[in-house]
Design a protein around this nucleic acid. Structure first.
Lengths: 178, 178
DNA sequence: CTTTTATTTCTGTTTTTACAGAAAAGTCTG
DNA sequence: CAGACTTTTCTGTAAAAACAGAAATAAAAG
């Protein structure tokens, strides 16, 4: 099969996204695959992704599985095609919500659990009062931020902006583009 | 010098924090050093940190420099002490704001710049209309989220909760602890 | 059921990152 | 400014992560 050959702008986007991914603890290839599907705006099969990105087929398979486990990518079947095809949402806000939900579940919630266990552990009595207080503060903070996130993710970002009274200049700049 | 010997709960906190750091693209030792200073609630010198965490002195030096560059840790001098001592804020919300500000500056802003360059590049004409649209959407989203973050970081989280109308149950649960 | 095509898992290699220890540089004190 | 103390930088090593290619498995077609 002929590689898709990314055009220069798309290539820059995909590479930058990969770079950002690795700074946030996401495998570079995983981020690239997602960026590619996002930009392509149509379902692609694993082989095409492989050749477009110039990475190993196995690598793409693993990345797609990971993206699916985060609900960022889903399988679709095209009529007359045997291969699985993969697509992602074109809605940035929806993608953001999925990412936040995923990280919360995989990282924030376990942290809150760990802190609760620390505070429930009898050994907490051996720690200084200040230490205990700071652990409590941290847990409280995480709980607040979690419910805040829940709340925020219900809105569209524009609504949020309004609610919080983001400065008129910025709001206008954004509205003008719509 | 005698190592501080972390007590079990503090140790768990510090180790968990290090683990979380690495999942978010922060060096494990850097995260551990910060967690330790936070829990200790008093200035510590590099030697004490080294022995408490059981890592190399050089490693601590590098981590402290990094934390200082993020404004998360500052040097203080104790009277009668020659060594530099290091401390961090005990205010979780303040720490969070510093972290967000840092990541924004180091990662979000450059991404927005990159996207603007993509859109300003004449080569954008070679891309499909849909691709261009999605890059624009992404940039717009980043801009919105950035100003949203600016706005949010002005408040204390409790105020935010109220503004957004977080459910009474949760608010109460939080208020009760205060 | 055999062949072809597609996908996943496994294994070894490469690359990157983290790290320790040593050396160097800097700082303070008397 | 001599000596001791402190911090940073440098260099090689170790650990971890990413990755490619091969092998194995699974699915579909004829």
């Amino acid at each position: 099969m002929r590689p898709m050959e990314l055009k220069p702008i798309a290539e820059r986007f995909v590479l930058h996204w990969g770079e950002m991914g690795s700074r946030w603890g996401v495998n570079r290839t995983v981020a690239q695959v997602h960026a590619l599907l996002y930009l392509a705006g149509r379902p692609m099969d694993a082989e095409e992704i492989t050749e477009t990105l110039g990475v190993a087929r196995s690598n793409v398979s693993t990345s797609l599985k990971e993206l699916q486990s985060w609900s960022l990518v889903r399988v679709v079947h095209l009529k007359g095609e045997r291969r699985d095809h993969f697509e992602t949402s074109a809605d940035v806000w929806e993608l953001f919500k999925l990412i936040v939900a995923g990280r919360r579940q995989r990282e924030i919630d376990p942290t809150a659990t760990a802190l609760r266990e620390c505070l429930a552990n009898p050994a907490i009595a051996d720690e200084e009062a200040g230490t205990r207080q700071r652990i409590e503060d941290t847990l409280k903070f995480i709980e607040i931020m979690s419910s805040l996130a829940d709340e925020m993710l219900r809105y569209k970002p524009e609504t949020l902006m309004k609610t919080l009274g983001v400065s008129a200049r910025i709001s206008q700049a954004i509205r003008r583009k719509e």
